[in-house]
């Protein structure tokens, strides 16, 4: 996709979002006889209108840019990078669940170890240094957040 087309597409998406916001703001309560600007929905509606205008301008700006601009910045340089990205997202999403069931130190240790493992070069993985760094970092987190700051983390099965 060219940059131009992407900008046009994004402009339309924001326009649609502004429309949704405008409609949603219409369901907010209004006070009879008061000053319109004081109603709950006034400000969201105002923002929706501004966003709609800006997104139209964005589309116009993109159209006027001629067919100059090159290809869009790629989302993933390689297939491996895309896989890494997906893997990181999965780890992030799992983190709060693991934290809740097992405790924050366990969650952090698993997170750091698996991500470091994946980010290391396949031919140059040093398990010992990965484990040392992961455990060390987890200990640092534990010392800072649990021992010094005494943050009340969820009471998991482990720590």
């Amino acid at each position: 996709m060219t940059k131009k087309n992407l900008d046009i597409l994004v402009g339309f998406i924001f326009f649609a979002f502004a429309g949704l916001l405008f409609i949603a703001a219409g369901f907010m309560p209004t006070r009879e006889g008061g000053i319109p600007a004081l109603n709950t929905g006034f400000y969201p509606r105002l923002l929706a209108i501004i966003l709609a205008v800006l997104s139209v301008l964005m589309v116009l700006e993109a159209v006027r840019k001629q067919a100059d601009s090159g290809q869009v910045e790629v989302w993933w340089t390689t297939k491996a990078a895309m896989f890494m990205f997906a893997f990181t997202i999965v780890l992030l999403v799992l983190y709060p669940f693991v934290m809740k069931t097992f405790g924050f130190a366990t969650a952090s240790l698993l997170f750091i170890t698996s991500l470091t493992w994946m980010l290391s070069d396949k031919n140059n993985r040093k398990p010992v240094s990965i484990i040392i760094v992961s455990v060390g970092l987890t200990a640092l987190l534990y010392i800072i957040f649990k021992m010094i700051l005494a943050i009340p983390f969820p009471h998991g099965m482990l720590i």
Binding site: A105, I132, V135, G136, A139, Y142, H155, L158, I159
Partner: peptide
């Protein structure tokens, strides 16, 4: 030095597991 540190950490972690138990 590193080894002592790791040992300390493991000790600390296992102690707190106990404490929770």
């Amino acid at each position: 030095m590193k080894r002592i540190l790791v040992f300390m950490v493991i000790l600390m972690l296992s102690l707190s597991v106990f404490a929770n138990g």
